[in-house]
Design a protein around this nucleic acid. Structure first.
Length: 922
RNA sequence: GGGUGCUUAGCUCAGUUGGGAGAGCGCCGCCCUUACAAGGCGGAGGUCGGGGGUUCAAGCCCCUCAGCACCCA
């Protein structure tokens, strides 16, 4: 027999390994194909709430389709994450007092592979704990041999077509990592800084122009000062020159419409080599580019000797001091600026002039825009397509080279003259370009942006450039599930590459999930100390362990005390072990359309309780059938209205679930399952069945009917729930299904209920709905009058139509046990001392001579009557409005008429009752 | 500056051709009724951000104002 309390730990431990070992996660070969490519998490990563959330949703889709009989593939793997991984390994070396240069390139790369072998599978282990049914036998890594071939192939083909080129341009330079990064890897953060106003003396005549800058050190690279052409203050100066302090250089004053005359003094210093706007201005005016920084963002030999070698911030202090000494510093203001920082290193990004490789994006973007516009790819929710279009229409060329060691090395070679040759390897270069052996070639040292290989993921994982059967079967994938934060990084680029190299979109639909935030809507981050680890929600964590985890390895140790305090306040007991199923169900419930998701640890408890409820319902059913000979399919079975009702409702719930999943409304699907399980199956049908099963007078066939209904509904319900809560459903199904002769190795591969298991039965639904309102009426009277639950009641009924009288006859047993009613007397005259309720048009009367206070009753009744009268007035007004009668659909008008009639009858009854109470009072 | 959303019960949120304001949690009362106290039964609580318009009818459609959030520059 099942334990009394649901214990996720023991259940969840036993199933996953079996599923995986028996190969249930692999495609089975038959049926329509359905595939999802997992967004490959960084190999350095561990499973955070966002991963857990998205993987849960993907797993629901995959398990659902698998049960429906689709040939299902969930392609998984990890990303080599160039910068992140290189940093992890470099930090390890640092611990040993070494740098990557000590090892050399080859050795270092070997060290990275070593690291991956030992530590690179954290996240895949965690995905398994989540129950994710990915096909691990097909796991890929973006640096795998096959995927690397795909990367090479794409690079070479794009280069040969002229879509990849090498260029010298201003890029985002990370002076800590010594590499270029793409626009997307730069985060603009608001920071408090200063605005320095500096005098540039006029070369001819007296006076000076005052320029305002947030970066005084870059003045050493200035090659002009710009003003707006319409700016009357400076019109005369345009074409002249000013003296650039500290340098002994003179620079021109130019006019350009892009200068904002209202900002600062209206004069802008122009540093074409170290600012993107200035670069563009420099291009327009043919200004020289003067690079004053080294790759570390220290001042180079182009700076005056006094500043050479200084770091940019040291230089800033020196320059400000020197300007002040010269009397050239007009003033300094507080200023809030948007500071560009590298998303990996956190370093201030420096616009820097370098040679880099670029993808010319427009020719790839145009078909990608068209594909979405045509509907070949559908965004869910639909409005994300707007964001996509907006970005794609303003897209810039993509800088794809990185000055790192870990990654796909660019297949390009140079000769002594700097000519470029692109092919798979050096031998092929010589063949392709017919180069003699005597020509010395050196390979480009750079590697490709990690996202370059990620962009190929949907087809490189399936074997491309080989034409494999997997490609044939599973490309395009069915849906991409991802957060909007990587629409630009990844989604758009996959679409471009898929169309270019496969001639078809990489996925039919993109389901964009919200981002998981904390209970107050803040982003989860280490420095806020508000990170919830999904594994902690599953396994539980002691408060002390949690505190030390939140405060370990902080970048800013001064935050420690605050984080500790907040953690202890938020989760004073730590986190109990809720189990995977509860976490998954919570995610499903939270998956509303498009908006950010606030994860409140309190909420998961409710869904753990839900699992417990399901557990106990199964326990009840198993207790009931224990030792019974069910004769499923052979013995005489009689189904009452209650049986037909619950079965009918189950089918409706199944339809709602399928509808929900089809529309990616996991919240609605989960809601339908929750309500059916708890509010209908447990709260009503299980209770109703007890009446029959405990009734010595009930026929064997009736009892069989109840038992079979309990079992069948439960068994179907478990299958319905399985994609959401796979562990508990497998555990219970193994015990329940065999009783119906429906055993099997696993619930995972059973048919998913399609909502046609039972016929809809409107008559049974009407009857049981009425029965429920009857029982609720008695219960309400009982609760309102504080009648002890143990006390049985003798009640009376009055009025009601023929149908209701028949229902009453048929359901006396249920009313007796569920409303604790000992007798029901039909009367035509209402007693004065009765409290009443309504079930349809039937009045329920509970005579309570010794319990009621007529004055209190009259008061309550008066309030009710007032409410009813207010409604009647409103309805009357509506029905007397000719416009409403004429223009509203007849069905609506009739509905309002019926409602009014009902209210009129209720008002009449209440008035009569008030009369009787008044008689009692006088 | 450009773009996209959001504002419904104390909290978190549903509410999909415009026609009865809902759920979970929290709160209040009663109850250890042999599946479940991680439970049962009952209850209170909302001028659907403000204003205007369209309509017989608006939480839902249109306009406008206010507040909040995010993305891009």
């Amino acid at each position: 027999m099942l334990d009394k309390t649901y214990n996720p730990q023991t259940i969840e431990a036993r199933w996953y390994e079996q599923w995986e070992q028996r190969g249930y996660f692999q495609p089975r070969g038959g049926g329509e194909s359905y595939s999802i490519a997992l967004p490959p998490p960084n190999v350095t990563g561990s499973l955070h709430m966002g991963h857990a959330f998205q993987q849960t949703l993907m797993d629901i889709l995959i398990r659902y389709r698998r049960m429906q009989g689709n040939d299902t593939l969930w392609q998984c793997g990890t990303d080599h994450a160039g910068i992140a991984t290189q940093m992890v390994v470099e930090r390890q070396l640092e611990g040993k007092g070494q740098s990557r240069y000590d090892l050399g390139r080859e050795q270092f790369i070997r060290a990275v592979w070593d690291w991956k072998a030992h530590s690179g599978n954290t996240i895949t282990r965690q995905s398994r704990r989540l129950g994710a049914s990915m096909d691990w036998s097909r796991e890929r890594f973006t640096m795998d041999e096959g995927l690397s071939q795909a990367v090479q192939e794409v690079f070479i083909r794009l280069y040969d077509e002229g879509l990849i080129y090498r260029g010298k341009r201003l890029v985002n330079w990370d002076p800590v990592l010594h590499t270029a990064v793409s626009d997307l890897e730069v985060l603009a953060e608001e920071e408090q800084g200063h605005l320095w106003h500096i005098r540039y003396p006029r070369t001819a005549g007296n006076g000076a122009l005052v320029v305002a800058t947030t970066r005084p050190e870059t003045m050493l690279g200035d090659t002009a000062v710009a003003v707006h052409p319409e700016d009357a203050r400076y019109r005369d100066l345009v074409g002249g020159t000013v003296e650039l302090p500290l340098t002994g250089r003179s620079i021109p004053v130019i006019a350009d419409e892009h200068v904002d005359p209202a900002f600062g003094t209206g004069c802008v210093k122009i540093t074409p080599a170290h600012d993107f706007n200035d670069y563009a201005m420099g291009q327009r005016h043919n200004l020289p580019l003067l690079n004053i920084f080294t790759i570390d963002a220290a001042l180079n030999d182009n700076a005056p000797a006094a500043y050479q070698g200084l770091d940019r911030y040291q230089a800033r202090r020196r320059i400000v001091k020197d300007l002040e000494a010269l009397g050239l510093l007009e003033k300094v203001e507080e200023h809030t600026l948007m500071a560009p920082r590298g998303d990996r290193s956190g370093a201030m990004i420096e616009p820097y002039l370098t040679d880099q490789w670029y993808v010319q994006v427009q020719p790839l973007a145009d078909p990608a825009i068209a594909a979405v516009a045509r509907g070949d790819i559908r965004f869910v929710p639909e409005n994300w397509s707007k964001t996509y279009f907006e970005w794609m229409r303003n897209i810039n060329d993509w800088c794809i080279s990185r000055q790192l060691w870990w990654g796909h090395r660019i297949p390009a070679w140079y000769d002594a003259e700097g000519n470029i040759y692109v092919a798979r390897d050096e031998a092929q270069v010589r063949r392709k370009y017919q180069l003699a052996q005597a020509v010395a070639l050196t390979r480009d040292p750079d590697v490709l942006d990690t996202w370059f290989s990620s962009a190929l993921w949907p087809f490189s994982t399936l074997g491309w450039p080989q034409q494999t059967s997997e490609l044939e079967r599973f490309y395009p994938t069915s849906v991409l599930v991802t957060g909007f934060d990587i629409i630009f990084f990844w989604v758009a680029r996959m679409i471009m590459m898929g169309l270019k190299f496969m001639g078809d979109v990489p996925f039919r639909e993109v389901y964009v999930t919200g981002l998981v935030r904390d209970s107050q809507g803040r982003k989860m981050s280490k420095s806020k100390g508000n990170i919830l680890d999904p594994l902690d929600l599953i396994d539980g964590i002691e408060i002390e362990t949690l505190v030390s985890k939140q405060t370990a390895n902080l970048m800013q140790p001064q935050l420690q005390a605050g984080i500790e305090q907040a953690t202890r306040k938020q989760l004073p007991q730590g986190i109990p072990a809720f189990g995977t199923d509860a976490l998954r169900f919570t995610f499903a419930q939270l998956a509303t359309q498009g908006r950010d998701i606030r994860f409140d640890a309190g909420r998961i408890q409710g869904y753990r309780n839900f699992c417990n409820k399901l557990w106990n319902a199964a326990r009840y059913v198993l207790i009931c059938v224990a030792g019974q000979d069910l004769n499923v399919g052979t013995g005489a079975v009689e189904y009452g209205a209650a049986e037909r009702w619950i079965s009918s409702r189950l089918s409706q719930a199944a339809q709602q679930v399928s509808k929900g999943i089809a529309g990616y409304r996991f919240d609605l699907a989960a809601q339908a399952l929750y309500e059916f399980t708890w509010d209908e199956y447990c709260d009503w049908y299980v209770e109703l069945s007890k009446t029959v099963l405990n009734d010595p007078g009930a026929s064997v066939a009736r009892k069989q009917g109840a038992l079979v209904t309990l079992l069948e509904n439960l068994e179907i319900l478990l299958r319905l729930l399985h994609p959401f809560i796979p562990f508990i459903t497998e555990e219970l199904w193994q015990k329940v299904a065999p009783l119906l002769g429906r055993g099997g190795e696993t619930i995972m591969l059973q048919d998913y209920p399609d909502g046609q298991e039972f016929p809809g039965d409107a008559a049974a639904v009407a009857e049981i709905d009425w029965l429920r309102s009857f029982i609720l009426g008695v219960r309400r009277i009982r609760a309102e009058r504080d009648i002890p639950p143990g006390r049985t009641l003798a009640i009376q009924v009055k009025d009601g139509n023929d149908q209701e009288r028949q229902w009453l006859q048929q359901n006396r047993g249920y009313i007796g046990s569920l409303a604790k009613v000992s007798s029901i007397l039909s009367v035509t005259i209402e007693p004065d001392d009765a409290v009443t309720a309504l079930a349809g048009s039937m009045t329920i009367l509970v005579p309570l001579a010794d319990l009621i206070n007529p004055a209190v009753e009259a008061n309550k009744l008066n309030n009710q009557l007032a409410r009813v009268n207010a409604d009647r007035e409103r309805l009357n007004g509506k029905l007397q409005n000719r416009n409403f009668i004429d223009k509203a659909p007849p069905a609506i008008v009739q509905k309002e008429r019926d409602k009014l009639a009902e209210l009129d009858a209720a008002a009449t009854r209440m008035t009569e009752q008030l009369e009787r109470l008044r008689r009692l009072l006088s």
